[in-house]
Amino acid sequence: MPDQGYYKKRPRPESIEALSKYLRSNAIVNETHQRDEHRFKVDRRGMPDLNVYLTNIYIVGEADVMEILAEAPETNAIVTMSAWNGYSNDAKSYAKDRDVGLFKFSEFLGAVYYVGKQFLDYEPPSLEERARRRNS
């Protein structure tokens, strides 16, 4: 049965469970806590906690970031959960200017290892970079 747009902005429960599973298997993550359907806390070993806002917005825009930060000002990371979702460059810049990381699901899994500017600027390695690492 179609979801009638229910998950237009809300992350799907199976996506939240997948994220939680990946994070719990990560050695730097002590715990994860789902606070509500959007808010998720990641307690990292020896690093500041992350207050993550989970969304299912297809393309996160600058106005979406503004809305999220007005609703959840404690947020220091926004993750759009579905594999085909993304964000605009303006949204990424706007979030970074407010010390908030804006990530796709898979990007966040790599960014979780970092703090500060490295966290905000995290980009996954390119295909060429990954191939070079495998071959060295």
Rank of each mutant, 00 (worst) to 15 (best):
N135F: 07
R39I: 04
I59M: 12
F40R: 09
A111N: 05
E107F: 01
L23Y: 09
F119W: 00
A70V: 11
Y22W: 10
G110R: 00
N30R: 12
T55K: 05
P124C: 02
P73M: 10
S25D: 12
K21C: 04
N85K: 01
I28P: 01
K9R: 12
Y6W: 13
I57Y: 03
N30E: 14
A91C: 07
I68D: 05
F40E: 05
L127S: 11
N135K: 08
E62S: 06
L50M: 04
V42C: 02
N85T: 11
G101E: 03
Q4P: 05
R35M: 07
G46M: 10
L102R: 06
V65R: 05
R39C: 08
N76S: 02
L23A: 01
F105M: 04
I59L: 12
M66G: 05
D43P: 00
R24H: 14
Y113V: 00
R44L: 01
A18T: 09
E107H: 07
Y53L: 10
P13T: 05
D121V: 02
D121Q: 11
R44P: 11
Y53H: 13
E37L: 13
D99T: 03
R10E: 13
R133F: 14
E17A: 14
E31A: 12
T32R: 00
R10H: 09
G5Y: 05
A72C: 13
R12K: 12
R45E: 14
K8E: 13
G101R: 07
D3V: 08
S82E: 13
L19F: 06
P2S: 13
E67L: 11
D97N: 12
K21H: 14
V100K: 09
N76W: 01
S126T: 15
V42K: 05
Y7V: 08
R12L: 13
E17L: 15
R130E: 15
F40K: 04
R45M: 13
D90S: 15
L127N: 12
S106Y: 09
M47G: 03
S93Y: 09
S126Y: 00
G86L: 08
R35E: 08
K8A: 14
S106L: 14
K104P: 01
I16V: 15
D36Y: 07
E123N: 04
M81A: 06
P124G: 12
L54R: 09
L50R: 10
R10L: 13
A95R: 02
Y87A: 03
E67P: 06
S106N: 13
A83T: 11
A131L: 15
R132L: 14
K92C: 03
Y58S: 06
R132E: 10
T80W: 09
S15C: 07
Y53K: 10
A18I: 06
N85I: 06
